[in-house]
Amino acid sequence: MYSFEIETPTSLADALSALGQDEAQALGGGQTLIPSLKARLASPAVLVSLAKIDEIKGITAGDGTVTIGGGTTHAAVAAGVAGSYPALAALAGNIGDPAVRNRGTIGGSLANNDPAACYPAAVLASGATIVTNTREIAADDYFQGMFTTALEEGEIVTAVTFPIPEKAAYLKFEQPASRFALVGVFVAKYPDGVRVAVTGASESGVFRWTEAEAALSADFSVAALDGLSLPAEGMMGDLHGSGAYRAHLVAVMTKRAVTAAG
């Protein structure tokens, strides 16, 4: 690692002022950023840890929604929304491994927007709202391609508000070594329609499969998806699977998600 100073503020205001320094970078749970620092893929002068800021942690239930603080760990989400949003709890409880889930945070995951991360699929399929220190961003505007989001320099994800669906499920086809999603599909059924978001597959990061959404909105059944497929163009291809394979998996996992959602 290159050398840097580290700060551990306990309030959002202090964190934002620390982030105003030259070459400052926010550190969430560090489960992606620390390995990146070790690989010298990032070289901040100051790292501002968000882990001790209680005001951006925790889960609050609203009217048909659940709001999760950006600094809430995956383990806390898995336990905290098990009753209100079971599909989201199951997703959070299957990220990485138990030790990673005790450090990694929802805000960190969303700020990083790894193309194979799980949370972006839940956020996009739920039409969630990303709350930052300055504004609210709709999920449809937030994800802007691999590792790219609508966040500005120094902007922090303070919370995410999820409308709770009638039915939902997330199905992840795990890359057997890393356990990241080779393809992950989140299906969420709301009174005004079904949303389907896919992670792990596309070169442009998480995306909505609008054809499947239309079919499922008309008839929420596996049969409604018969004959639907995605083109291999634009899908990631690597030693774990070709673009065509991933495109095929998207359709398979979508069907499984519909079955699981019941």
């Binding site: 580290i6 551990t8 550190l27 560090g30 489960q31 620390i34 390995p35 790292l47 840890s49 882990a51 001790k52 990673v100 450090r103």
Partner: peptide, 8 residues
């Protein structure tokens, strides 16, 4: 995958 300062 945690800094010592974070365990203060």
């Amino acid at each position: 995958t945690m800094f010592a300062a974070e365990a203060h």
